[in-house]
Design a binder for these strands. Structure first.
Lengths: 192, 192
DNA sequence: TATTGTTATACTCTATAACTATA
DNA sequence: TATAGTTATAGAGTATAACAATA
């Protein structure tokens, strides 16, 4: 799924809208987008934005990984990884070094400048977190962090790739008679 | 956001990656995307996907609203609203009726079929919620719902439009010396 | 023949700017 | 002149396929 299809939140000032949208999806979306928006701003001058950040942090690890390894780990396409690394390399944040064991592959490593930037961005992100959670008191904040983390690790465990079919089918969709017949996977192409 | 800028999660099976990414942003992203993915699947045969659902639910309200009112409330562009409504109308879920008070405007109302579909989708979404929260016990689940909702309403209150500058500046970014000079708002256009 | 990385092409979604018909 | 809705055009981002070098 391209992130393009993330639903836009009803952040309207209409009280009625809030009441109607006061479900988990709406609340999760508002909080998440708030975080993403601030994170985007923090990473505004980093090539590739948030995704560039993830690549950079991966490159800043102890063991240098190949492009493909990073791509697969982050779930980005090989071809996109090329563009991302081009920009990061141009900015002097990472370097492509030949893999001594495989002359096809390149090992990605962060430069000193890259390491310094990662450290700085991580500090700023920690502040963004605090700001997003500012509505909660200290103990509740910790409780929330704990709950989200538990949910995330569970999701990541049972559904690492993210197969949507599984989720819905598990949930017992069959019990609800669908009013519309379901020719699955046939998104219409809205003209043009 | 276009959701284009939603960062891709590190859902890799590498334990090291999880440790490194075990921050709030990562966890929020995994949980949110899990929900979105399932929601997308549920709304696969609904024209416009999740956004079409939001339009449809708005149209299913008691008071019929104009296209522009719905667009502003949902934060979607006027022009996109046209396409969305075209598809929804084609599917027989909504109708465009002339506004008696203003011959330029159209009042959007849901058909019987539209109302039935909304009810069905809401049922399915409630199941998706339960599935996403299945890692938690009953009391913790309620606690999580409560915490997210409180965070969301607070964010929606202090930052309804979602100005990213505010969030970061509030947070006291100035204390951290930026290693890179900051020509703000100058996202590079990565060639092509 | 399969795989790593690169490049080129097409497609989707969105944003912007016109255009019409009303006000 | 301004507004509700529509249409057309251009741009950003992504996915797909083809390609070169190496295994």
């Amino acid at each position: 799924m391209s992130a393009t299809d993330v639903p836009i939140p009803a952040t309207g000032d209409d009280a009625c809208a809030q009441a109607l949208n006061a479900d988990l999806g709406w609340a999760l979306g508002v909080v998440f987008r708030s975080y993403v928006k601030a994170a985007n701003y923090v990473m505004d001058d980093l090539p590739g934005g948030p995704r560039g950040y993830q690549v950079l942090t991966t490159a800043a690890r102890a063991l240098p990984a190949t492009q493909l390894a990073i791509a697969q780990q982050l779930g980005v396409d090989r071809t996109v990884m090329t563009y991302l690394l081009d920009d990061l390399e141009h900015a002097g944040l990472i370097e492509r070094q030949p893999d001594p064991a495989d002359r096809r592959a390149r090992r990605i490593i962060a430069t000193d400048k890259g390491h310094a930037l990662v450290a700085d961005l991580q500090r700023q992100l920690r502040r963004v977190e605090d700001h997003v959670l500012s509505a909660l008191g200290e103990p509740e904040r910790d409780a929330f962090r704990d709950l989200v983390r538990r949910l995330a690790t569970q999701v990541d465990r049972v559904d690492p790739v993210g197969d949507p079919c599984q989720i819905v089918e598990d949930v017992g969709l069959g019990e609800t008679p669908a009013p519309t017949p379901r020719p699955r996977r046939t998104r219409s192409t809205t003209r043009r």
